[in-house]
């Protein structure tokens, strides 16, 4: 199982660990206050579903799709975002409507 190695010591999966094409729901945003506030205001909130679209050619930063737009963040920030309900690319069905998943 690919996702096993992405588990951190605390058992939580980080957005930065997800392979390209996977979807997940944001569980927690743990960055410096200034960056965190920017991410929150850009809609990267607990409950928001996010898809990892691609990595930059040099591996960092990554491109995310959320709330109908594309956001690029560095691996450092992506590792501060804890996710849940990870769906790998191959099992994905057509993307549902709406920005958030039910809590």
């Amino acid at each position: 199982m690919v996702l096993n190695k992405t588990m951190s010591l605390t058992g939580s999966t980080r957005l930065g660990d997800l392979p390209v094409g996977s979807r997940a729901v944001v569980a927690e945003v743990q960055c410096d206050r200034a960056v965190r506030r920017r991410l929150l205001e850009l809609g990267v909130l607990p409950g928001t579903s996010v898809e990892v679209m691609r990595r930059a050619p040099l591996g960092d930063p990554i491109e995310l799709s959320l709330r109908g737009y594309r956001l690029s963040i560095r691996g450092d920030e992506a590792h501060g975002i804890v996710v849940r309900d990870v769906v790998a690319e191959d099992t994905r069905v057509a993307s549902p409507v709406g920005a958030t998943s039910p809590e």
């Binding site: 410096d32 991410l39 594309r70 956001l71 690029s72 963040i73 560095r74 920030e77």
Partner: peptide, 9 residues
């Protein structure tokens, strides 16, 4: 603060 990249594409 540590420089970051939070950039809309």
């Amino acid at each position: 603060p540590r420089p970051t990249l939070v950039l809309e594409l």
